[in-house]
Amino acid sequence: MKFFIALLVMGILTQNFTLAKFLGICPFLGVSKKLNTAVGMSAAVIFVMLIATAVTYPLNILLENNGLAYLQTIVFILVIAALVQMVEIVLKKYVKSLYKALGIYLPLITTNCAVLGVVILNIDYIGDYAAFGFGFGHAMMNAFAAGAGFMLAMVLFAGVRSRLEGADVPKFLEGLPITLIAAAIVSMSFLGFSGLVEGLGLLG
């Protein structure tokens, strides 16, 4: 139980995928302009991360049993691409407004490194946290935490960007430059969480 909480805290705060690991920056900058699209995008990413983990975890066992672990990246990307297509079809049918709001960024989840990142990291964690008996349940928890961390970063940053809208920004920093600077500052603020997991004794 302790380890589950440790994974959650790590994914959301100390090792936040966007702000500490710098994965998934493209949607982070692209879709964080409005709060509702940011939340919709994050929800889609959480969903894709969860099913991607659920599918790739057993696939990895299949690959390793056949001595084909070197095929991880290509197989995982294949699976993620198919899953994203599936999410797109489902969204188009049932949540058309979200489908339109996400636009090009929905197919771009395919190349969202955060999704591939969480899947590959789960495989690494099997070895890293062998002492805690890292298994399928932990992998799913880690995927959810990573997605939730992505959502937290998106929501926080949507707030920051709405403040930027009204700010008097020097001409040469308008648009993307000031957004990147703001992202850097938000990212630095997340450094403050480092050591939280060890401090709480969650990995003891």
Partner: peptide, 16 residues
């Protein structure tokens, strides 16, 4: 294995 996964995913998407 890779082709099998690809074909499976493709079929699933086609049906969906």
């Amino acid at each position: 294995i890779v082709a099998g996964i690809g074909i499976l995913a493709g079929l699933l998407l086609a049906v969906l």
